Amino acid sequence: MNKRDTCLAGNTSDLDAAVALFHSLSDATRLTIVRRLADGEARVVDLIGELGLAQSTVSAHVACLRDCGLVTGRPEGRQVFYSLSRPELLDVLAAAETLLAATGNAVALCPTYGTGARGAAIDTEETRQ
């Protein structure tokens, strides 16, 4: 059995879990938060200042990542410091960056999920201003 066959041999619940993992990382804001937390822990207020987003937006995305088990909170007084819960997440991000570099970012051209896809959220400097 080759490596591809082994990957596809998992049961449906394994596939469902993988779908949930990648879905949790598919939002630009959540991915930005994960990448920021890769540099060290942060409070929601820190993320608000760095991302320039509303508190409710940042809190909702952090809650999603926490519910998925990707982020953990460390209470300190009235504050909560968030960090990545699993160092393996950094391996996933590194592998994704390697894959994107190897494909020349071809996924951005995908007619279904790429940046120009109908209904895709395009997050550029021009659209944020």
Rank of each mutant, 00 (worst) to 15 (best):
R66G: 08
S59P: 00
L25Y: 02
N2W: 14
A102I: 12
V92N: 01
G77T: 11
A95S: 13
R36P: 10
A106N: 06
A28Q: 03
L31C: 13
A60T: 09
R4E: 14
D27Q: 02
Q79C: 14
E125R: 15
F81W: 13
A108F: 12
L47S: 10
V34K: 01
R30I: 04
S59D: 11
R86I: 05
A106H: 09
A121S: 10
R36F: 05
E126K: 14
H61D: 15
T32I: 06
A20W: 02
G40D: 15
L21I: 02
T124H: 07
S26L: 09
S59F: 06
V34M: 05
A28N: 06
S24L: 01
A54D: 11
P111V: 05
V45H: 07
L25G: 08
R4V: 14
F81R: 01
I48V: 15
D27P: 00
E76I: 05
V45Y: 01
R36M: 13
G49T: 13
S13C: 03
Y82I: 08
A102S: 13
G104M: 05
A54H: 13
V19A: 10
L84Y: 00
E88W: 08
N11R: 15
T127S: 13
S24T: 08
A28G: 10
D27V: 04
C110L: 07
L47G: 09
S85C: 00
